[in-house]
């Protein structure tokens, strides 16, 4: 009995002394690692992996390289804890506004142009986009197979039911702005916009040589610039390169 206690204590003591000696003998860790250590101290430290990194320390390392990561790939646990958020702001010397991260997805296509051919392959937007080119008249529009709806964890995207047309529509009430659908769309039609935005350009051609117009789509942008001329507050900025209107929501008075 006493022998067991003695052996266990001595092994524990030996390990402790070994760690102590190693700590003294080894060279000091690099400055960058110390900095990362400090950032990791502001994180929850529960290694849940929800951010996609293997553990909080790996997230801290990525954060030390790129501060914007807290906006583009935020740690949800930190965002919900005021104290942790404050510490992290101080550490990274940036201001984080959780409400600005409150975003919604919108599908930038409202028209359902007539079909010019039959597609009978695998029923996903990705394969349809890759294999056939386009079977709808507008080359930019929503294909309506609902790749985005399949990944939505909130069931916020519906294809036909909400609009009566064969295009995806996001329900702003259900959308949490997670951005999963943005990556899915092969035409890059889905955008994340601030939740309080009043005005969004819902057509998404990217070349002025190929404007949707009336002949391709009943709801397509005509490129008439009427919106640009009508706005009295300069909230609409004309992107000359792409030939599309862009919005400055801080000037919008709607």
């Amino acid at each position: 009995m006493i022998l067991v206690i003695a052996i266990l204590t001595s092994i524990g003591l030996a390990c402790a002394i070994l760690i102590f000696i190693m700590n003294k003998v080894l060279p000091a860790e690099s400055e960058a690692l110390k900095e990362t250590e400090k950032i990791a101290g502001c994180l929850p430290g529960i290694n849940c992996g929800a951010c996609g990194f293997p553990g909080c320390f790996a997230y801290a390392q990525a954060l030390a390289r790129d501060k914007d990561l807290i906006v583009t790939n935020p740690c949800m646990t930190v965002l919900q804890d005021k104290k942790m958020l404050g510490d992290l702001e101080k550490m990274l010397d940036i201001k984080i506004d959780p409400s600005s991260m409150n975003k919604k997805a919108v599908v930038c296509c409202t028209g359902d142009p007539e079909t010019i051919g039959n597609y009978s392959g695998i029923e996903t937007c990705k394969s349809a986009n890759k294999l056939t080119g386009r079977f709808k008249r507008c080359p930019y529009g929503c294909l309506g197979f609902g790749d985005c709806a399949k990944v939505c964890p909130q069931d916020a995207i519906q294809i036909y039911a909400a609009s009566g047309r064969n295009i995806a529509v996001v329900d702003p009430e259900k959308c949490t702005g997670c951005g999963l659908c943005v990556k899915e769309c092969p035409n890059n039609l889905i955008k994340l916009v601030p939740a309080d935005t009043k005005i969004v350009f819902l057509c998404s051609y990217d070349s002025i040589k190929n404007i949707p117009g009336r002949e391709k789509c009943f709801r397509g942008c005509l490129h008439c610039r009427k919106c640009y001329k009508a706005c009295e507050h300069d909230a609409i900025i004309w992107n000359k390169e792409k030939g599309i209107p862009e919005f400055d929501s801080s000037r919008c008075t709607l």
Binding site: C15, I19, L26, G55, Q61
Partner: peptide, 28 residues
Amino acid sequence: LVIASLVQIVELTIRRTNIALYNALGIY
């Protein structure tokens, strides 16, 4: 007891001496 302390020592050693190896293995 022994495994926990040894892993500590290994982590400490990798961390202080070889950052590249630490980035590859140490976080695990």
